[in-house]
Design a protein around this nucleic acid. Structure first.
Length: 430
DNA sequence: TCTGGGGTCCTGCTACGA
DNA sequence: TCTGTCGTAGCAGGACCC
C-alpha cells in the first residue's frame, strides 16, 4: 500500500445494524419497530439493535435483562448466524468486484484498499458511493463507508458516516465520510482517547490516571511516558496511532489462528459428567469445522468460567496435529480432569490453535499401526451432514431424552438455551 | 447490575536445551 | 563439571475487538 500514505484510498465499510437489517429483509412487517437480535435467554446479551431500539438506550453487548427493562415492547429475535453468513458472503463478493484487496474484519465489516482501482473507477469517495449503491440495490441493505489514508482512520471515519439513533427515529448519516491525509491530525486530535482501536476499559483507566482524555493528550506525551504506563508494545502502537501513523496494510489472506466453541449454560453445572456431555459435542463440532476448513491443530485449550465469573484456561499441546473428534475429546477430558467443577461452572469452551493445513498432517501412532479408524468415521459423518444437514447425525450424547432430538450445532450464538435443564445444579447447589 | 460467543494479540512465567 | 545466559516453546491469564 505504498501510495496509501499520501492519498485517501483505504475504505472501511460497515453494514448498518447488520443482523437486524437482515431480519427486517426477511420480516418487513417489523420495520419501524424496536428490534433486538440476541439476548432472548436469561443470560444472553444483545448482538444487534435497530436504531428504534437504540433510541431506548439499548446497545450491543448489553445484557438481555437490562434491554428488556429499557424497552419491554421491543421484538427480541434469536440470531440466525447461517443466514447472516450467507448475506455477508454476497456483500463481500461485491467488495471483491471492486478490488482483490479486501480484509474482512467480521461478518459485517471490511477494509478495502482501492489504490489499484482509482484510475479505472474514479477517486475513493466515488468508489465508496458506488459500493453503497450496489449493496443497497443487490442486497437491500445500507452501509456506511469511511475513507482515509490509513486503516484505523478509515474505521473512525465510518463512525462519522453512520446513522445515529434519536427519539424521533434514526438520523441518517452522510453514508460516506472522507478524511484527506492532510486532515488526519485535525480529525483525530479532539476525539476521546477510547476511540482508538485497542483502548478498552483497562487501558482507559490507566490513561485517565495520567490525565490523558483525548487523542491529542496522548499524541503530545513523549513516547517513553506512554511506554512506561502501557508497556513497550501497546505504548508504542497507541502513541503512533494518536499521531496518525499506521503502517498496517490491508491483508486479504489472513490465516485463521484458532477454532473453538464455548457455551454459557442457563444454570451453573456442578457435575463432571454433565460437563463431559458438553465436551463430547464441542469436540465433535470443532473437529468437524477443522475438517471443513482443511485444517489440523496441535494445541487444545479448555476454558472454564465459574459461577463467580472467574475464568481459567488449561491447555495442552499434542505431539501431532489432529482434526478428529476423538483426539480432541481425549485431550479435552484430560484438561477437564484438572478442574474441580464443585463450585459451579457457568461456561465451558474448547478450542484448538496451532493450526496448519491438513496436507501437512502426520499419522498418529494409533493410525500408523491400526489404520485411520476414527478419522474414517468422522469423514463419513461429514459426508452425511453434507447431504442431509448438520442435524442428521451427531454424537449419541447430543440426542435428547426421547433419543431423537439432536441439539443443533452453532444454534446458540448469543446466549444460553432457555429450555436447557441442568441435572447437576439441582443435586449439588446449595 | 450484569457480564455471549467467536476470535486475536500480548505479557509474564517456567522449563529446557545449547 | 558447574554455572550463567540466551532463545524458544509451552502454558496461563488478560485485554480487546465485533
Amino acid at each position: 500500500m505504498s501510495d496509501s500514505r499520501d492519498i485517501a484510498s483505504i475504505l472501511h465499510v460497515d453494514m448498518d445494524a447488520f443482523f437486524v437489517s437482515v431480519e427486517l429483509l426477511d420480516q418487513p412487517e417489523l420495520r419501524g419497530k424496536p428490534v433486538v437480535v440476541g439476548g432472548d435467554g436469561e443470560r444472553g446479551v444483545v448482538a444487534a439493535a435497530s436504531y428504534e431500539a437504540r433510541a431506548f438506550g439499548i446497545h450491543s453487548a448489553m445484557s438481555s435483562v437490562q434491554a428488556r427493562r429499557l424497552c419491554p415492547h421491543a421484538v427480541f429475535l434469536r440470531g440466525r448466524y447461517h443466514r447472516y453468513s450467507e448475506v455477508s458472503a454476497n456483500v463481500m463478493a461485491i467488495f471483491r468486484d471492486v478490488t482483490p484487496l479486501v480484509e474482512p474484519l467480521s461478518l459485517d465489516e471490511a477494509f478495502l484498499d482501492v489504490t489499484g482501482a482509482l484510475r479505472l473507477l474514479g477517486d475513493a469517495p466515488t468508489i465508496a458511493a458506488s459500493i453503497r449503491r450496489r449493496v443497497l440495490d443487490e442486497q437491500g441493505l445500507t452501509c456506511s463507508v469511511g475513507v482515509a489514508s490509513t486503516k484505523f482512520v478509515a474505521k473512525l471515519a465510518t463512525e462519522a458516516a453512520k446513522p445515529k439513533a434519536s427519539k424521533n427515529g434514526p438520523q441518517f448519516g452522510s453514508g460516506v465520510f472522507v478524511v484527506e491525509p492532510e486532515e488526519t491530525l485535525s480529525f483525530l486530535r479532539p476525539l476521546p482517547v477510547e476511540s482508538l482501536w485497542g483502548v478498552g476499559p483497562a487501558t482507559l483507566t490507566k490513561l485517565h490516571r495520567i490525565g490523558v482524555l483525548t487523542i491529542a493528550d496522548l499524541a503530545d506525551l513523549p513516547e517513553e511516558n506512554v511506554v512506561a504506563v502501557l508497556g513497550r508494545s501497546q505504548g508504542r502502537h497507541l502513541h503512533s496511532l494518536a499521531n496518525g501513523q499506521d503502517e498496517r496494510a490491508v491483508e486479504p489472506d489472513r490465516a485463521m489462528k484458532s477454532i473453538g466453541q464455548e457455551e454459557t449454560f442457563s444454570r451453573d453445572h456442578h457435575l463432571r459428567s454433565t460437563l463431559d456431555h458438553e465436551l463430547v459435542q464441542f469436540a465433535d463440532s470443532v473437529a468437524s469445522r477443522l475438517r471443513a476448513q482443511g485444517l489440523v491443530g496441535r494445541t487444545v485449550q479448555l476454558k472454564v468460567r465459574f459461577g463467580d465469573f472467574t475464568t481459567i484456561t488449561r491447555s495442552t499441546t499434542l505431539v501431532v496435529a489432529v482434526d478428529d473428534s476423538r483426539s480432541l475429546l481425549e485431550a479435552g477430558r484430560g484438561l477437564l480432569a484438572l478442574v474441580d467443577p464443585a463450585q459451579g461452572v457457568r461456561l465451558l469452551g474448547l478450542s484448538v490453535s496451532g493450526l496448519s493445513s491438513d496436507s501437512s498432517r502426520q499419522l498418529t501412532f494409533d493410525e500408523a499401526i491400526s489404520g485411520p479408524g476414527w478419522q474414517e468415521a468422522d469423514r463419513t459423518i461429514d459426508e452425511i451432514r453434507a447431504r442431509f444437514g448438520d442435524e442428521a447425525i451427531g454424537p449419541a450424547v447430543a440426542a435428547g431424552p426421547d433419543g431423537l432430538r439432536l441439539k443443533r450445532r452453532g444454534a446458540q450464538q448469543w446466549g444460553p438455551d432457555a429450555e436447557q435443564t441442568d441435572p447437576g445444579s439441582s443435586s449439588t447447589s446449595a
